[in-house]
C-alpha cells in the first residue's frame, strides 16, 4: 500500500483580529494517514471542523502547526510549507477537491468546464470532449444544457457539472465535501459508483457525507474528528 496522505500533529486555531482578537481553536494534535485505494470518511457533529480539516488537506486553510505530507509524483511533499507553485502543481496533478458548490465562471459552458481538467493534463481536444460528454450523460444532465454556461442552472444541475468535472479524470487523491447534498436518489447512486470506481482504480478518498446511506456505501474507514477537538 502507498501512503498518499500523512498528517502529523496538525492544529488549527482561527484568530479573528477584527472581533477583539478572539481565538477559535478547532482541533489539536491531529494524526492520521490515508492509503491509496482507501475511502476515509470524516465523522463528527456539525461544526466539529470536518470541512476545515478537508480544506487544510487541500492547502486552502493553513494549519497553525503540523505537517501534511502529500505523495506527489512519487515524493512526499509537505503541503503546509510548500511554496505556492508547488501547491498548485500538487492540486493540478495529484489532489482533487469536490465541493458542494460549483464556482461558476462567466460564459464558460458546462461541457468546457468538464473538459478543462483533461485538457490541462494533456488530453487531445477530441478525447476530452468524448469523455466529458460521457460523464455528463452518466450524471443525467440533459444534453441541451451542455453548451450553456451553468450560471442559470439549478443547484442540483450545477452540482452534477461539478462532480462530472472532478470525476472525469480522478486524481490520485480526492477530497470530497458533501457531493450529494442536493441530488435525487438516482444521481446519488451514480456518485457513489463514481467514488467506488475511483477508489478501485487506486485513488485515496477523504470525504464528508451527511447522508448516512451514502456514507455506509462509500467508507472503508471512519475518522471521528471530535477526538481531536477535546484536546484543543
Amino acid at each position: 500500500m502507498t501512503t498518499m496522505i500523512l498528517v502529523e500533529n496538525v492544529a488549527k486555531t482561527f484568530t479573528l483580529h477584527n472581533q477583539g482578537g478572539v481565538r477559535l481553536p478547532v482541533f489539536d494534535n491531529v494524526n492520521f494517514s490515508v492509503e491509496a485505494g482507501e475511502a476515509l470518511v470524516l465523522a463528527g457533529a456539525s461544526g466539529a471542523g470536518k470541512s476545515s480539516l478537508l480544506r487544510i488537506l487541500y492547502g486552502n486553510y493553513r494549519p497553525t502547526s503540523g505537517e501534511i505530507r502529500i505523495t506527489h509524483a512519487g515524493r512526499a511533499i509537505d503541503i503546509v510549507s510548500a511554496v505556492p507553485r508547488t501547491v498548485l502543481d500538487i492540486r493540478r496533478r495529484t489532489l482533487g477537491f469536490v465541493s458542494q458548490f460549483l464556482r461558476v465562471i462567466p460564459r464558460v459552458s458546462a461541457l468546457d468546464i468538464v473538459r478543462d481538467p483533461l485538457l490541462a493534463r494533456g488530453a487531445s481536444a477530441d478525447e476530452a470532449s468524448e469523455r466529458a460528454k460521457a460523464m455528463l450523460a452518466r450524471l443525467n444532465l440533459p444534453e441541451r444544457l451542455w453548451h450553456l454556461a451553468p450560471a442559470t442552472f439549478s443547484g442540483g444541475e450545477q452540482q452534477r457539472v461539478n462532480i462530472a468535472r472532478s470525476f472525469v479524470d480522478p486524481s490520485p487523491i480526492m477530497l470530497i465535501d458533501e457531493p450529494t447534498a442536493s441530488l435525487d436518489a438516482a444521481n446519488r447512486d451514480v456518485v457513489v459508483e463514481l467514488i467506488s470506481e475511483a477508489r478501485a482504480a487506486g485513488s485515496a478518498i477523504v470525504g464528508i457525507f451527511h447522508d448516512e446511506a451514502v456514507r455506509e456505501r462509500v467508507a472503508t474507514r471512519y475518522l471521528d474528528i471530535t477526538d481531536f477537538r477535546k484536546a484543543a
Partner: peptide, 13 residues
Amino acid sequence: MTVHVPPPDATLD
C-alpha cells in the same frame, strides 16, 4: 476508469 498518474519527471522551471 483509471487514475491519472502524474509523470515522474514533470519538473517545474
